[in-house]
Computed example of a mutant assay.
Amino acid sequence: MGWLQRLFGMEKPADAQTNPAPAGSAPDGGEIPPERVGLNGEYDQSGLAKRVALAFDQDQELTDYDRLWVAQTGGTVVLKGEVPSQDVLNKMVSVARSVSGATSVSTDQVKVG
Rank of each mutant, 00 (worst) to 15 (best):
L62W: 00
S94A: 15
V78D: 11
Q5A: 12
N40T: 13
G9W: 08
A53T: 02
F8D: 03
Q58I: 00
G113L: 13
G30F: 12
L48F: 09
G29E: 13
Q60C: 00
A49S: 15
N19V: 03
E11I: 02
V105A: 01
V37I: 14
G41C: 10
G38Q: 07
V78W: 02
K91Y: 01
E82D: 10
K80C: 07
D108V: 08
Q58C: 01
E31D: 15
P20I: 13
F56Y: 14
Q86I: 02
E35A: 07
S46Q: 15
R51Q: 08
A55I: 01
L68H: 00
D108C: 07
D66F: 06
F56H: 00
K91I: 01
D59A: 02
S94V: 08
T107P: 05
A53P: 08
A49K: 09
P22K: 05
S100L: 07
F56D: 00
F56W: 02
W69T: 11
L4P: 03
P34I: 10
D15C: 10
D66M: 04
V70W: 00
V88H: 01
A71K: 13
V110I: 11
P33Y: 08
Q60F: 00
D57W: 03
G9R: 05
G41D: 09
K80G: 03
Q5D: 12
K111S: 15
M92E: 08
E42W: 15
A55P: 01
E82A: 02
V88C: 08
V77Q: 08
V70I: 14
D59E: 03
G113C: 12
